[in-house]
């Protein structure tokens, strides 16, 4: 019994660290989406720190809940996020380039207008 209480405490501490880190990454995504100067940079802020922050937050929740059904559903959310976030970012970026919202000066490599050989 004593031992179990110890592990619950450890899980809670790890969960707290995960929650704080995840919230910080989500916060940095919010800062990025406001402060970055062009569409593709903002898209980067949504696609990367946001997903990492969400995964950390959900890990924290799973460590707090000690429940397998809930953990399964949280894993499902993470899988959906990992599947959908690149697709959404790709579609936003492609639509941005096609409708001329991305200036050529922002791009280091422009493989869409100058295809590599």
């Amino acid at each position: 019994m004593e031992d179990q209480g110890f592990w619950v405490t450890v899980a809670d501490v790890v969960a707290a660290v995960c929650l704080l880190l995840g919230a910080f990454f989500s916060f940095s995504a919010g800062v990025g989406v406001l402060r970055f100067g062009n569409l593709l940079a903002r898209m980067h802020a949504v696609a990367k720190p946001q997903v990492l922050g969400l995964i950390l937050l959900l890990t924290g929740v799973a460590l707090r809940l000690h429940s397998w059904p809930a953990t399964t559903m949280l894993a499902l959310v993470v899988i959906f996020q990992l599947l959908t976030s690149p697709v959404a970012a790709h579609m936003v970026g492609r639509a941005g380039i096609r409708t001329g919202k991305v200036s050529e000066n922002d791009l280091e490599v422009d493989e869409l207008t100058n295809p590599p050989r």
Binding site: A15, L19, G22, A23, S26, G53, L54, L57, L58, G60, V61, R64, L65, A70
Partner: peptide, 8 residues
């Protein structure tokens, strides 16, 4: 994330 924090 907010709903997750509430659940945690």
């Amino acid at each position: 994330g907010a709903i997750a924090i509430e659940a945690a």
